[in-house]
């Protein structure tokens, strides 16, 4: 086989794999692109081809009280549960990451465990438990539930990042006379910041779209956006749902782009 044929064959196989990738990514992106297109339709029922364009469904989505109210609650909830998750998860992860005892390993696995429980089971169990202890369906109940899931996402990335940084830097700071607190502030926390940041983003985004956990806690005073969207969609099939979906995606995308600017997507995926 001549060198030219070898190179040609290599290019061909690379090209085939490339085309396959494009096709598969199209499949992954397709429903999202379709929803965004449909949100600009002027028809009152979604059908193709789209005959006219308008922004009226965005106006309708913004004017529809439950959407905006629950969107605001979802944002508050994502921020509140991520903060609580950081306060609980980061110290625990720092304490567990470098210990090699069996107990530490078990505790680290325990911190991450809520991720592996189907959210619908956790939500169901929590609803009856919280009602029994008097918290029940309220913003506070949602906060408690979402924090349970925020802890593992934050602990997981902090554990991974803290294990990958050299151990002797803090020791050096301590030998040079830094107090425990200033070692923590000036050495440890800056080193694990990418982990805290990536984990927080995960936790916030998961909370923002956590339907399975939230729908059990749906009440008139505090319901999250995905729950309102689900009940709207069970009854109607108009482009307002497409418009509010696009708005929600835009918010999440803005958060992701912020992360990309600050740390790069690779950090997020590597952890």
């Amino acid at each position: 086989m001549s060198l030219v044929t070898v190179r040609k064959r290599r290019e061909m196989s690379g090209l085939a794999l490339g085309l396959y990738t494009v096709a598969l990514l199209t499949f992954v992106m397709l429903p999202i692109v379709l929803v965004v297109i449909a949100s600009f339709s002027s028809a009152s029922f979604i059908q193709f081809p789209i005959r006219g364009w308008s922004l009226k469904w965005y106006v309708r989505a913004i004017e529809y009280g439950p959407f905006m109210k629950s969107l605001w609650i979802s944002i508050q909830l994502a921020v509140a549960s991520t903060l609580a998750g950081c306060l609980l998860g980061v110290p625990a992860a720092l304490a567990l990451a470098r210990s090699r005892t069996a107990a530490a390993r078990t505790l680290a696995a325990f911190l991450v465990a809520p991720i592996s429980i189907p959210a619908i089971v956790l939500g169901f169990a929590l609803l009856y438990y919280l009602s029994a202890v008097g918290i029940g369906v309220s913003f506070f109940g949602l906060w408690v539930a979402h924090t349970v899931v925020a802890i593992p996402y934050i602990a997981r990335t902090v554990l991974a990042v803290y294990r990958s940084v050299p151990e002797n830097l803090e020791e050096a700071a301590a030998i040079l006379g830094a107090s425990r607190l200033s070692t923590l502030r000036h050495v440890t926390l800056p080193m694990v910041r990418p982990g805290i940041f990536a984990g927080s983003m995960f936790a916030a985004l998961i909370s923002f779209d956590n339907l399975s956990l939230s729908f059990f806690f749906g009440s008139a005073s505090a319901t999250t956006l995905p729950v309102v969207m689900l009940s709207y969609m069970e009854n109607q099939f108009d482009p307002a749902i497409a418009a509010i979906s696009a708005i929600q995606m835009l918010i999440a995308l803005a958060v992701l782009l912020l992360l990309e600017r600050l740390y790069g997507l690779d950090t997020l995926v590597a952890a």
Binding site: P226, M233, Q248
Partner: peptide, 16 residues
């Protein structure tokens, strides 16, 4: 392209 869909609501994707 892989991460962007994870940011959208599952309700949105089912709708799509």
């Amino acid at each position: 392209c892989l991460i962007a869909p994870l940011l959208t609501s599952v309700v949105m994707r089912a709708f799509g």
